[in-house]
Amino acid sequence: MKRHLISAADLTRDDALLILDTAAELAGVAARPIKKLPTLRGRTVVNLFFEDSTRTRISFEAAAKRLSADVINFSAKGSSVAKGESLKDTALTLEAMGADAVVIRHSASGAAHRLAEWVRGSVVNAGDGTHEHPTQALLDAFTIRQRLARQGAVPDGRDVPHDLRDAGPDGRGAALDGVRVTIVGDVLHGRVARSNVLLLSTLGAEVTLVAPPTLLPFAVGSWPCSVGYDLDAELPKSDVVMMLRVQQERMTAAYFPTIREYRRRYGLDAGRMALLPGHAIVMHPGPMNRGMEIAADVADSPRSTVVDQVANGVTVRMAVLYLLLGGAEAAS
């Protein structure tokens, strides 16, 4: 594995499987009386958040603490310094404090990449602008594998190699070959979509994006996925449907006429959910706009993995921190 985790594209299939399998093992720690491992004792993880976030920051904090690392939360909100300059200054400060890992969330795409040039420790991208959010993709992949393997799912008779079916209840060792994932909604502003497309296709899944044409990025044709505009046509052949939040705070133009129209064409309600095959699961990276991209009864249905995704976030981030920091310094 590389020294930093900036993009899901940096992960080879073996890297990704190593992270998922490590996370599968670490999931057992949460069930123990002592939910702590001594592995990162004496190492410092800095959470550097230039953007609001609750679940990601808490998730990284819990992950680092379960591995006995010291956690410093650095919330740069309200800083009036120009962004480029402040990031470099902050990097120098962190360098002086001896941070072994920096978890960064920033509103500018590429911030994590820049930071990695300035600090000696490992940089973990926790979301940079509309670019990437690799740990979210990892926890989504982990959740897909866990849920489909536990259900023993994916109908027979389909001509795809499904080692998921034989992998045992936690899906250990299995990739996602042939699993059909449909990602719906605001792909343009969503870093989650890009990371997921890259990671899931690395793991062998077939990804389809469904969104209004205005909410698809310009270069989507070069992504390793297919694109559709009709949600009802895609749902019956999906194993996984992932609803993305409509990021109104990033929308500076009118991307769709009304919320009502968006909901009607791209929202997932109980009627649409009935089109899914019996084993299919519904995911949402959170926070949800209930009643917009996802109806409340869908979000609370047994198909929904929203709560699993949060719990798996901690174990997957533990795995990432362990693999980046746990051993001797990696070669590159």
Partner: peptide, 21 residues
């Protein structure tokens, strides 16, 4: 019982895969 996370020589080698507990 996997002992990897408790080893005292973790820092001497690249991070290794975990065994099962």
């Amino acid at each position: 019982l996997d002992v990897t996370m408790h080893r005292d020589d973790l820092r001497l080698r690249p991070a290794r895969a975990l065994g099962r507990t």
